[in-house]
């Protein structure tokens, strides 16, 4: 029973505190049950929803499509980012386009995407890929630009060929930045996935939330919302573990 255990208990107390406020709001009628149903009913639905056949399928759709979009977006963004970062003139010329793309709310593209692709999983993947492209691109560019001048000089004096420079120098050097970009993009991919499903009713957790709400099963909708949040926490956690393994060399060298 050390320091860690006490902290753990207090963290549990904090969560219970939030739940208690929720229950108090329900009892006193300060919180409208149409917005936030009673806590015990949502709690029950969180368990009950697990037994539903559509639950696993919805989870699978959301995660699988999010990962597909993430993969496509990053495969396009990483080489593009390194190329842009290598040449200052290209970086200047593309800055405005990138700023436009990063500040564009992808969800606003949805009506057009639905017109083009229909309300399909492919459309969802396209939206996710566009949304994931920009954070990875921006981080990769800053990674490729922040190359240590001594490394640049060394490469030049040894006349390292372009392909080696790309794979052996630029890619590892930009690694920590790319990793940050990928982490941001992972969160983004789930957010966009759920958002697209809610609006366009493509299969996934978002669709279940929308449907449950339209059948007036608000508690079920909250159960799905709970799991979508859990998904985000889980992915961030997994990403941290993976990053520690892949970039252990970088974390160790900057730890001093």
């Amino acid at each position: 029973m050390g320091e860690g255990f006490r902290l753990f208990i207090w963290q549990g107390v904090a969560i219970l505190f939030v739940v208690a406020i929720w229950a108090l709001g329900n009892v006193t009628g300060l919180i409208d049950v149409a917005i936030l149903p009673p806590v015990q009913i949502v709690g029950y639905q969180i368990i009950a929803v697990l037994a539903r056949p559509e639950f696993a399928a919805a989870m699978g759709h959301t995660v699988f499509d999010a990962l597909r979009g993430l993969l496509i977006g990053s495969i396009l963004a990483i080489p593009a980012g390194i190329l842009i970062g290598m040449f200052p003139a290209v970086e200047r010329a593309t800055r405005m386009l990138i700023d436009f793309g990063r500040s564009f709310p992808v969800i606003a593209l949805l009506p057009i995407l639905v017109l083009l692709f229909g309300a399909t999983s492919e459309m969802k993947v396209v939206a996710i890929a566009i949304a994931c492209f920009f954070p990875v691109l921006i981080q990769t560019i800053s990674g490729a630009r922040r190359l240590d001048p001594t490394i640049v000089d060394t490469i030049r004096s040894y006349r390292i060929p372009a392909h080696l420079r790309f794979f052996k120098v630029l890619l590892p050097a930009a690694g920590p930045y790319i990793s940050t970009g990928l982490r941001i993009a992972t969160t983004v991919s789930i957010l966009v996935s759920v958002g697209v499903e809610i609006v366009s009713l493509t299969p996934g957790i978002g669709r279940e939330i929308s449907l449950a709400r339209s059948y007036n099963e608000t508690a079920t909708a909250f159960a799905y919302i709970f799991f979508s949040g859990l998904l985000g926490v889980l992915l961030t956690f997994l990403w941290d573990r993976l990053e520690a393994r892949l970039l252990g060399w970088h974390l160790r060298s900057t730890a001093e």
């Binding site: 904090a14 939030v18 759920v194 909708a221 919302i225 961030t236």
Partner: peptide, 19 residues
């Protein structure tokens, strides 16, 4: 507060919109 906040932050804000 960090576990509570991390969870609440991870909830897709779009999910609450229809409700």
């Amino acid at each position: 507060w960090s576990p509570t906040l991390n969870f609440l932050r991870a909830v897709p804000p779009a999910a609450i919109v229809p409700i």
